[in-house]
Design a protein around this nucleic acid. Structure first.
Length: 481
RNA sequence: GGCGCAUUGGUGUAAUUGGUUAACACGCCGCCCUCUCAAGGCGGAAAGUACGGGUUCGAUCCCCGUAUGCGCUGCCA
């Protein structure tokens, strides 16, 4: 990487109300790139569409980024030397630079109404021609423009795209791209409500904020020429660019609400761990290569290994099965205390009383191998809290002679045991087996029924450990007589 | 329709500068472990690299075309 200038990258979402998984990954790639290069990661809110304002969207966005651990160096709530970081608070800046473009003839006023433009498009469509602004306001005389402005007719400012040439650029991920300028629309830069469009605001802000690398979604690739025209008009350097591929549904269409959850919040809510989510999203479209076959990486490792050049250029299907697997790997290996803290809300929500912290901890220890995400915790934990009566079939099993022999033998052995831990209950059963000659199902099922009133469940050692010596004895004794 | 981008097993990916029996992981199947359910261990099926042409002694890798998918084609971002 070139270290001449300090790396500065930005994540520039428009606040739509939730953080789309695709945006999450774009943010993550920006973050990893910045941290890898010891640069700055900036959050900028692109709220220039007044009609799409969503209450509380920014707060939510910031919240999710923070819980995901994607901390930024500059942004709305943390400040920085290049603010403000809300585009809606930078209107004067855009106007100023836009006037500059107007003066130098790189942009022009246009006065069509939306209805007129719709009509223009409709006609073009009917004629099978490309739909784009016909650039007619370019030919307005100076006086015509003056008159219209003076009379207060609403106007927009449009980019005067240079005709009959080609714009070439190099994308870090995709290589060289070129587009004929005649196919590029005279994009609106300043809307009639005085707000800039994405194209104008984005170019000005990226320059003013000293952005060195633009890492963003693939959907922006075809707008790059417009941006380059703007950079040239302003006389500014064009930042390096990397357009990351889309995340797809299983049928390879763009990831959509119709086919799966798309909001990062939804996955967090279901009990995917942020570490697993980060790990998984990083590997969706990127990998460290060089014969690396591991797939579990901490954030620190990802930072160390990440390089934007190794991001894939094709879209990647979001494979929930693999996320499930990865999340279960994290759950299995997570710090137990922390996992307990994270699990408690889920257990409570499932109606499980967690006030006995010692037991709760044992329960979490016991279920961690059985769940792939936290919202499965209550269902797996339930068995450790139940004390139902047995049905007739089960009573028959537990009431027979061998079962009684097993239970009494086990009770006597248990009584001499100080405390049950995760490993010392199973050996007890082996002893019972040796001494009684009872083995297999005949040995285990009465114990299982006595302890859980279920024929299926986790291994008995775990169950005994979770219930504790007293409770185990109580339950066994109920069925001894 | 036009323009742009993409294309390795079902999915995510790997394959030093073109030379490999095309590798790994998820998922799937089977076996082992086992009272059951997971976990774990072992093994298997699964792509000849979208298709068709080139270039080359040799192409997953370079070039062209076709197909397919996606993106853009807004006073949305």
């Amino acid at each position: 990487m070139d270290n001449n200038s300090k790396v500065r990258v930005r994540f520039a979402p428009s606040p739509t109300g939730y953080l789309h998984l695709g945006s999450l990954r774009t943010a993550l790639f920006n973050y990893l790139f910045a941290r890898h290069n010891k640069g700055k990661f900036i959050l900028r809110i692109e709220d220039t569409d007044q009609s799409r304002k969503v209450e509380g969207a920014v707060e939510n966005l910031i919240n999710v980024l923070k819980t995901m651990g994607l901390d930024y160096d500059e942004g709305p709530d943390v400040g920085g030397d290049y603010g403000p970081y809300f585009q809606s608070e930078r209107l004067e800046i855009y106007k100023k630079y836009c006037s500059g473009l107007l003066e130098k003839g790189y942009a022009y006023y246009a006065f069509e109404t939306e209805q007129e433009l719709d009509e223009m498009r409709r006609v073009q469509q009917m004629q099978g021609r490309q739909t784009m602004y016909n650039r007619r306001a370019r030919h307005l005389t100076e006086n015509e423009v003056k008159e219209k402005l003076a009379s207060g007719v609403p106007y927009v400012v449009r980019l005067k795209v240079p005709l009959d040439t080609e714009i070439k650029f190099t994308d870090i991920i995709r290589g060289n791209v070129k587009i004929e300028t005649n196919l590029i629309d005279d994009q609106v830069l300043l809307k009639s409500d005085g707000y800039p469009t994405y194209h104008l605001a984005n170019v000005i802000d990226d320059h003013l904020m000293g952005i060195t690398h633009i890492i963003r979604g693939e959907e922006w690739l075809t707008s790059v020429p417009k941006h380059i025209i703007l950079y040239n008009a302003f006389g500014w350097d064009v930042p390096k660019m990397a357009h990351v591929p889309l995340i797809l549904n299983p049928d390879k269409t763009k990831l959509s609400k119709r086919q799966s959850d798309v909001a990062t919040e939804d996955y967090l809510k279901k009990g995917f761990l942020k570490e697993a989510l980060v790990n998984f999203m990083a590997l969706l479209g990127w990998n460290p290569g060089e014969g690396e076959s591991r797939e579990i990486f901490s954030k620190e490792e990802l930072i160390r290994l990440f390089s934007i050049e190794r991001v894939n250029s094709a879209g990647a299907v979001f494979n929930i099965e693999k996320l499930n697997w990865m999340n279960s790997e994290y759950i299995k290996n997570y710090d137990l205390e922390k996992l307990v803290d994270l699990s408690i809300p889920y257990l409570n929500k499932g109606g499980i009383d967690t006030s006995d912290l010692v037991k709760t901890k044992r329960v979490v220890f016991a279920i961690r191998n059985y769940i792939s995400k936290l919202d499965e915790a209550p269902q797996q934990a339930r068995v450790y809290y139940k004390n139902d009566s047995l049905n007739d079939e089960q009573k028959k099993i537990i009431g027979n002679e061998t079962s009684k022999r097993v239970l009494s033998l086990l009770i006597s052995k248990l009584e001499s045991l100080l405390e049950i831990n995760a490993d010392n209950f199973k050996p007890l059963l082996s002893e019972v087996q040796k001494e009684s000659g009872v083995k297999g199902k005949d040995l285990f099922m009465p114990v299982r029924l006595a302890l859980t009133s279920e024929e299926h469940g986790p291994e008995l050692g775990l169950i005994a450990y979770v219930l504790g010596k007293n409770e185990v004895l109580n339950r066994l004794k109920t069925f001894q007589k």
